[in-house]
Nucleic acid binder design. Sequence first.
DNA 1: GTTACTGCAAAGCTTTTGCATCCCT
DNA 2: AGGGATGCAAAAGCTTTGCAGTAAC
Lengths: 142, 142
Amino acid sequence: MINSLEKFREKGIKLTPQRVAILRYLDGNKGHPSAEDIYNKVRKIFPMMSFATVYKTLERLKQRGDILELTIDPERRRYDPDTRAHHHLICIGCKQVVDIHTEITITLPDEVKESFELTGNHIEFYGMCSDCNTVRKNILTG
Amino acid sequence: MINSLEKFREKGIKLTPQRVAILRYLDGNKGHPSAEDIYNKVRKIFPMMSFATVYKTLERLKQRGDILELTIDPERRRYDPDTRAHHHLICIGCKQVVDIHTEITITLPDEVKESFELTGNHIEFYGMCSDCNTVRKNILTG
DNA sequence: GTTACTGCAAAGCTTTTGCATCCCT
DNA sequence: AGGGATGCAAAAGCTTTGCAGTAAC
């Protein structure tokens, strides 16, 4: 996401210290953090930073296409600095979300293609990670 | 979803008039309504019905596996009385959601299968419906 | 010097909850 | 009769917004 901070300055984005801290936290982050995750983390460096700054910065980055807003969690929005097309695997136990970069081709029926101009897709895989599976088995066997 | 209202009575679910109205509204509904959609519609029949009743009923139905809670809209939760495995096609223009019942097989890499026990998946297709596409073209051509 | 950003507080929405009353079974 | 459901209002979360002050450019 951040090749260089210059990339942002070039496009009329002001690089405030708060923003740089948010960008640094997001860069390469594979945890699909929520606004609160970002707030809690960055606040350790900038204790005065407000929630509004986090939301406004996320909105700005989203508009610019620098991050994706994910709709994989019914409780809150999550953000992904990886803007390449990819999919997600969600553990129904601990709710962790893992990226799936496997290329997947999906063919829809002609009747759909005629009435819709398709632009993309996103797959949510559901399952149980080995940790949660181990816990589950231990419970079952007493 | 509703083969017969008896099915609900059998399982210890009390069939109040409000609930029957909600069930009737949901039965066969392909519009993926939100709690507010349900409230607005059913309130025309039961003006005294509260939002709490809608939410509590939806929670009960969800627990029983009679409806699915969809996470396809970042603004609000939507509900689907069709509990069969299926996918969704979302118009990025008017936000309408269409069911996709095409059977789709997806193969994930072995390394994923080894660390996750997969239980299901859900695909969101994005595109533009013919109505929105027409509008867009008219704007572009003046 | 401009313009955009920050921080705060208030407000807006969606969803949940407590509780007294009501009514389905 | 008993247990669950209703309705109301209050509260809880998440997210947005207005505005005055501030800082990046």
